[in-house]
């Protein structure tokens, strides 16, 4: 991209403060479309530098029970892609933080690659993370994304060999999403020791920021990851806060805001 994207700028701003960025994830439509919009805004209000909005899918193969439950609630509530795009639009117009969409490939493919990229960009979205779309199958999407000024964030895993990391980072943009562990989404008591090694190996292939996700849920874990990565990605822990609030919207939003603020302090700890 000729000019720096909104996503790159947000990560650069964190780097300029000599700290890691905090990226929060919540699915759209959870616990309702309007409730979800407020919850994503609460992520930013609490201190997230960027947000990922999940487009719920019927077959979330890479998600653990927490996000599966949230996706299920959203789908039972009748969430449509149009509602996800409205969520992006309302969040993007209310906050400065870049708004990404994270989802599986089939909803985007079925909606139409070009149409989805155009509509996401028009809604103010900054890019997309498509964890089941490997580089080999991604050319059509990347072309559409680039045309509409969207970043494509690729996920890398501890099992990736160096030459494959190089191949992935060569075509990704915005940042690289490094999976801390081999596994699905969900909170874990320990951030895997593989994460630091993966960040190191990924950095050797690219100048893109490398952000770590999967299993990070506490301020201490955020601080631990922030010591070696450019960003910390948290999802399931936020979803769990909303599940724990069990329908009490204000309590749920307050809990999301509070966790975001604790994690934001975590990424600033040195």
């Amino acid at each position: 991209m000729s000019t720096e994207s909104k996503l790159s700028a947000a990560l650069a701003a964190a780097r300029a403060e000599n700290r890691a960025a905090l990226i929060g994830y919540l699915p759209a439509g959870f616990p309702s479309v309007d409730g979800g919009i407020k919850a994503v805004r609460a992520l930013v209000e609490g201190g997230c530098d960027a947000v990922e909005i999940g487009l719920p899918h019927s077959d979330p193969v890479l998600d653990g029970p927490t996000i599966q439950t949230a996706d299920d609630i959203a789908l039972r509530g009748g969430i449509r892609i149009a509602d996800v795009l409205r969520t992006v639009r309302e969040v993007a117009s209310a906050v400065d933080a870049p708004v990404l969409v994270m989802t599986y490939w089939n909803p985007v493919d079925h909606y139409g690659t070009e149409r989805f990229a155009a509509d996401l960009a028009a809604a103010g979205g900054a890019g997309c993370i498509l964890p089941d779309l490997p580089v080999e199958e991604s050319e059509e999407w990347r072309t559409a994304a680039a045309k509409h000024g969207l970043d494509t964030v690729f996920v890398v895993a501890p099992s990736n060999r160096d030459e494959r990391l190089a191949r992935i980072t060569a075509v990704g943009s915005g940042f690289v999403y490094a999976a801390a562990v081999m596994g699905v989404t969900g909170t874990r008591t320990q951030v895997g020791h593989q994460a630091e090694d993966l960040v190191k190996r990924t950095r050797a292939t690219t100048d893109l920021p490398v952000c770590v996700g999967l299993g990070v849920s506490t301020p201490d874990q955020a601080a631990e990851v922030a010591a070696f990565a450019d960003g910390v990605i948290v999802g399931s822990a936020f979803v769990q806060r909303l599940l724990d609030a069990a329908g009490d919207e204000e309590a749920g939003l307050a809990a999301v805001r509070a966790l975001a603020s604790e994690l934001a302090a975590g990424v600033r700890r040195r």
Partner: peptide
């Protein structure tokens, strides 16, 4: 070689499974 039968097939998998 990429696993395609005409326009069908392929390999749509997460990076964690690529090596396996």
């Amino acid at each position: 070689a990429r696993g395609y039968f005409g326009r069908f097939g392929g390999r749509f998998i997460p990076e964690a499974l690529v090596a396996a």
